[in-house]
Design a protein around this nucleic acid. Structure first.
Length: 671
DNA sequence: GAGCACTGC
């Protein structure tokens, strides 16, 4: 038989490759040997190597599921967990939920027969709350670990701890080349010897194994001189490709919606001047803010004699894969979220990408045949890019993670073995917030029962505090709905850029005087009474049907948590009318919100902007908020974020200044 | 007058 190399150059591979022909097949014996011999195996597998789909099947065949044990494969994203499970079930000739299953939030398709289980890494962490040693699993494979998501990093630390108590457990980390040694060094700990021969790097703990992928070569081109305007330059490059290169679709990486809209506008303007007989251009946007329906267009094959141009954010770098891309245009930037621990404000700004990102982007051109990548920056600029993106754990608000680790019984966060330690300021800031909420005491221990319960609720600490305070304000049922709606993060209304006025008037139908939180409550209540079984009702009101269905699930889950704590949720309308005067209901909700969000308070200025309590910072109501063009005095808000040169607050509710002193006397004490 | 991408029984 021809070698694998010959095979890939003379044939175009089918979408579903026969498993035996995947590059991983000839590494089967050595993989199984390493996993049998060492607790930790790092698998460096390029795109198309088949590691995610084949390795779990090899392990199953080799007997790792005897005695009822299960193989877990974690993914950073929900869609990946479900699609890979479907694919492996097909190969194992079973239905999803039988021998192969998946488990993500709100969807558990597993059964007693399940031997291979795909799940999100956040989900596996949740399971550790109930089963701290994850004892039902014989093998845990952490896929895409090089992406270094918050939950992946925490999970790796937890697995290292578990390995000390369960030497028979096998951990497989799938990684890109760059981080493989770092992962091994982390698990080997003191045993790791930097000067050792590569084969002995991990001592008795583990080994690294590389598996070649199925990628076509991609020619990379740099600019000779820096571009002044990369959107303009990207558009020019599209036309250069269109007139000079062979057929094949184009993928452009830009940083956000505004740039994407502008690029699409420019492309369609200039496409008008193409020769009437030349092939046409079809440009399509791709970003997370689009509805699923709108996103589907990018997967449809272009009409005959048409070149497809997809203009995308970072979503196409790892989360979404589009077939038929032959040309990639990379602007060299991405928007990244970061948390400033001294101000407590999140920022969202465009920053240069890493070399690893640039490689990943270029690789998108070589999935179906040899491709080209046009980088809109110079080779010198590329040389100065960081090797890898700063892991999320070094730039995120850590309050939720601190709570989660505490709930897992990991009390000393500072001494917890992180792959990369978070900066001390982020940890300190997290503890300050949790202390002010009453979740931890002077000794940084979780309080009982408040802190323990907050740690178990799957919402951010401020909202968790509000929910646990709600029974005292007789508004628990309402607050559950509000918490569920806030968790949708601004996806309640669908965006129709062509009809802003209509959108405004629809929103006004649900609007109430007190602000965004009570407006959400209105929408939720209208949805469950009128729109739950009818997506048309949502369309008519420009509401996001899928998002609202999700709110119903989230609410149900939060309610079950509270009931487990022994907190009764009274859902009958008549009952709270007996306890609270209906006209006072909004006030109870405003007071209750203040018990969690007192640190997010601001005062409106005569010009309509807001100032923080300390007076230092000018804040703007986000245009999606009701308070964007309404009068208020004091308000609390859910979220604060700086983009460009403005700092926006969103999900805003009016309060009385006195509430702040009443519910957070320590925080606002007069000095 | 506007926000990158993810996640949680």
């Amino acid at each position: 038989m021809a070698s694998d190399q010959d095979f890939s150059t003379s044939f175009i591979p089918a979408l579903y490759k026969p498993a035996a022909l995947l590059p991983i097949a000839r590494h089967k014996a050595s993989l199984l040997y390493l996993i049998e011999t060492y607790p930790v195996t790092i698998v460096v597998g390029q795109t198309g190597s088949g590691k995610t789909t084949q390795l779990p099947q090899y392990l199953d065949q080799a007997g790792w599921c005897e005695d009822g044990k299960v193989i877990a494969v974690t993914q950073p994203r929900r869609v990946a967990a479900t699609t890979v499970a479907t694919r492996v079930a097909e190969e194992m000739h079973c239905k999803v939920g039988e021998e192969v299953g998946y488990s993500i939030r709100f969807e558990d398709l597993t059964s007693a027969a399940t031997r291979v289980k795909f799940l999100t890494d956040g989900m596996l962490l949740r399971e550790a709350l109930v089963d701290p040693l994850l004892s039902r699993y014989s093998v845990i494979m952490v896929d895409e670990a090089h992406e270094r998501s918050l939950s992946t990093d925490v999970l790796l630390g937890v697995l290292k701890k578990i390995l000390k108590k369960r030497p028979e457990l096998r951990v497989i980390i799938s990684s890109a080349t760059l981080q493989a040694e770092e992962f091994l060094k982390f698990f080997a700990g003191e045993e790791y010897q930097p000067d050792a021969e590569p084969a002995d790097l991990g001592g008795k703990v583990g080994r690294i194994i590389s598996i070649e992928g199925r990628m076509y070569p991609v020619d990379t081109l740099f600019l000779e001189n820096p571009a002044e305007d990369y959107v303009e330059r990207a558009v020019k490059t599209v036309f250069d490709i269109h007139t000079q290169e062979a057929e094949g679709d184009v993928l452009i990486f830009l940083t956000g919606r505004e740039e994407i809209d502008r690029a699409i506008q420019l492309i369609s303007e200039r496409a008008a001047s193409l020769h009437p007989k030349s092939p046409s251009l079809l440009s399509l946007p791709l970003y997370a803010g689009l509805t699923t329906e709108q996103q589907m267009y990018v997967f449809e094959p272009a009409p005959e004699n048409t070149r497809k141009v997809i203009v995308s954010t970072n979503i196409a770098e790892a989360s979404v894969t589009i077939d038929g891309i032959v040309y990639v245009i990379d602007c060299g930037f991405a928007k990244l979220r970061a948390y400033n621990p001294s101000s407590g404000i999140e920022t969202l700004t465009a920053v240069p990408i890493s070399k690893a990102s640039a490689t990943q982007r270029a690789g998108r051109a070589g999935r179906t045949r040899p491709g080209k990548c046009f980088r809109l920056y110079t080779q010198q600029t590329y040389g100065q890019l960081p090797e890898a993106t700063v892991p999320e754990i070094q730039r995120a608000n850590l309050a939720p993670i601190v709570m989660q680790l505490k709930a897992l019984g990991i009390d000393n966060i500072v001494r917890f073995d992180f792959l990369t330690s978070p900066p001390a300021e982020l940890v300190i800031r997290a503890f300050e917030l949790l202390f002010s909420l009453g979740a931890v005491d002077d000794h940084a221990k979780l309080t009982k029962p408040l802190g323990m319960r907050m740690a178990e609720l799957a919402v951010d600490p401020m909202m968790a505090k509000v929910l646990l305070a709600a029974p005292a304000f007789k508004c628990l049922s309402e607050m559950l709905s509000i918490a569920a709606m806030v968790s949708l993060q601004g996806t309640v209304w669908v965006q129709h850029s062509d009809n802003k006025k209509a959108a405004e008037s629809h929103r006004r139908k649900f609007a109430v005087e007190e602000g965004d939180h009570l407006t959400y409550l209105n929408v939720y209540q209208a949805f469950v009474t009128k729109g739950k079984k009818d997506s048309k009702w949502c369309r008519d009101n420009l509401l996001n049907y899928r998002a609202l269905l999700r709110a119903v699930s989230v609410r149900g889950q939060l309610k079950r948590y509270l009931e487990r704590f022994g907190i009764q949720v009274d859902e009958t309308l008549s009952s709270h009318q007996q306890t609270v005067d209906p006209s006072r209901q909004p006030e109870q909700i405003q007071r209750c919100l203040t018990t969690g969000y007192f640190a997010h308070a601001a005062k409106m200025q005569p010009d309509g902007t807001f100032k923080t309590v300390s007076g230092g910072l000018t804040l703007h109501a986000h245009p999606s908020s009701l308070m964007f063009n309404r009068k208020a005095d004091w308000v609390i808000f859910h979220e604060i974020m700086q983009t460009g040169d403005k700092t926006y607050i969103r999900d805003i509710t009016k309060i009385e200044k006195g509430y702040l002193l009443e519910y957070a006397p320590e925080y606002y004490k007069v000095t």
